[in-house]
């Protein structure tokens, strides 16, 4: 088997989340499943490939979703794609969130911007077994009200009794009635025992840095902070060398890491 060959997937739906972010629903041409937190390489045939973490419920087997922000050459092409177009997928790759280690714990999920994509998948996976967890606090941040992704799901996310949901925007507009400030401003007065709780952080590097530092300040153990790291994975298989961070390959040893394992490395936030 050629490990670099993508499988065909067909776009069955496209959801416009924000002016720059779309969620694509794919029907895989052959059997495909992933664990929450794992990533895939999506190929725009003949043009290029980029890594994404699926944003859908990992229990859904007949389709999967990827939320894509328009930031470069390949993502711009994805944004021009239409329902019915055929793309390629390789993967899933790497290690996802260690759900079993979250059992019977209190969880704090901190997300920012398009970092919500992997977290949405995680939230589905957690909600599928919601009674396994004592409490889940979800704190999400977006640049502005119009940059909030999955607006139509937020009410659903708030439903379980053991979930507390917080949302903030960096800059409000006249219609916004909620919190204003960066996501770390939501992390005060948490209704959980921070010394025992598990923290899950995903977002742009700068947000992950300050959120992680804030969690430490609040009493979280470095062993209890889970980060979803981003690098420019190319092969996804630990061979091409692009995503190495010290002694790890993000693609193979991650992309989800425990903060304690990587905190002493050089420039992990870049």
């Amino acid at each position: 088997m050629n490990i670099y060959t993508p499988n065909k997937v067909t776009i069955t739906n496209i959801i416009e989340e924000t002016p720059a972010i779309k969620t694509f629903v794919f029907k895989p041409g052959s059997a495909f499943s992933f664990e929450t937190g794992q990533f895939v390489e999506l190929t725009y045939p003949g043009i290029g490939e980029a890594p994404f973490t699926p944003s859908s419920d990992p229990n859904k087997k007949d389709s999967f979703e990827v939320t894509i922000m328009k930031v470069g050459k390949v993502t711009e092409l994805f944004h021009k794609a239409k329902v019915g177009d055929e793309l390629g997928v390789r993967g899933p790759f790497g290690n996802g969130y260690p759900l079993d280690s979250f059992k019977d714990k209190e969880l704090l999920i901190v997300g920012g911007g398009v970092g919500l994509a992997p977290l949405r998948s995680l939230i589905y996976a957690l909600y599928n077994r919601i009674n396994d967890f004592k409490k889940i606090v979800i704190c999400l941040g977006a640049r502005s009200p119009q940059d909030i992704v999955y607006k139509y799901l937020l009410e659903e996310f708030k439903k379980p009794k053991n979930v507390e949901f917080r949302l903030t925007v960096d800059r409000a507009d006249s219609s916004w009635k909620g919190n204003v400030g960066i996501v770390t401003t939501l992390l005060n007065k948490l209704p959980i025992d921070t010394k025992q709780a598990k923290g899950i952080v995903c977002g742009p590097p700068i947000m992950m840095k300050f959120a992680s530092l804030k969690l430490l300040e609040l009493g979280f153990s470095p062993k209890n902070i889970h980060l979803s790291m981003e690098k420019n994975m190319s092969c996804g298989l630990g061979k091409c060398g692009h995503c190495r961070l010290g002694k790890y390959y993000i693609c193979k040893d991650g992309p989800v890491f425990i903060f304690d394992d990587i905190k002493d490395m050089w420039d992990i936030w870049d």
């Binding site: 670099y4 190929t43 725009y44 045939p45 003949g46 043009i47 290029g48 490939e49 190319s234 092969c235 061979k239 091409c240 060398g241 692009h242």
Partner: peptide, 8 residues
């Protein structure tokens, strides 16, 4: 190290 690229 190598880079994968796409072409047609």
């Amino acid at each position: 190290c190598f880079l994968l690229f796409d072409t047609k």
